[in-house]
């Protein structure tokens, strides 16, 4: 029953996020608002709610399966990309190369070096 209890909490936070998005006309997805609200709640309480943690684990492990039907959809929309395939591929590969290079460079400059062998 702890699982159901935790699931109810997660759903309630999603619904709260949805309400905030609808009432505030926010350009955000309800899930992200719910995620932020729940994180703030944990910070305020100073710990993770046990039942929520119990329900979170199986849901997070299932994430990849939950998005899978969306991946199947790719095969249905290939014709929509059509003539723009080069723009899409360049944006994904060259864009990712540039952003990985920028991230590594930026973080090497800003992150203080950690003592070797320390598992922080």
């Amino acid at each position: 029953m702890q699982l159901l209890h935790g699931f109810l909490w997660l759903t309630a936070f999603w619904l709260a996020g949805n309400l905030a998005v609808e009432l505030g006309h926010l350009p955000l997805s309800p899930g992200v608002v719910g995620l932020m609200l729940l994180t703030l709640y944990f910070i305020a309480r100073g710990r993770v709610h046990g039942t929520i943690a119990k329900a979170s684990q199986p849901l997070i492990m299932m994430l990849a399966m939950l998005i899978m039907p969306g991946v199947v959809g790719v095969f249905q929309v290939l014709d929509q990309i059509g003539t723009h395939w080069l723009a899409v591929m360049m944006s994904l590969t060259l864009g990712t190369l540039l952003s990985v290079a920028s991230t590594l460079w930026l973080m090497r400059r800003l992150l203080p070096a950690s003592p070797r062998g320390e598992d922080s």
Binding site: L35, L66, I67
Partner: peptide, 21 residues
């Protein structure tokens, strides 16, 4: 599949747990 993907809502909220940790 839409029934399955409905669960993405609470699963996204659940990411708060590893984030807090």
């Amino acid at each position: 599949a839409d029934w399955l993907m409905l669960l993405l809502g609470p699963a996204t909220v659940a990411l708060a747990v590893p984030l807090y940790q």
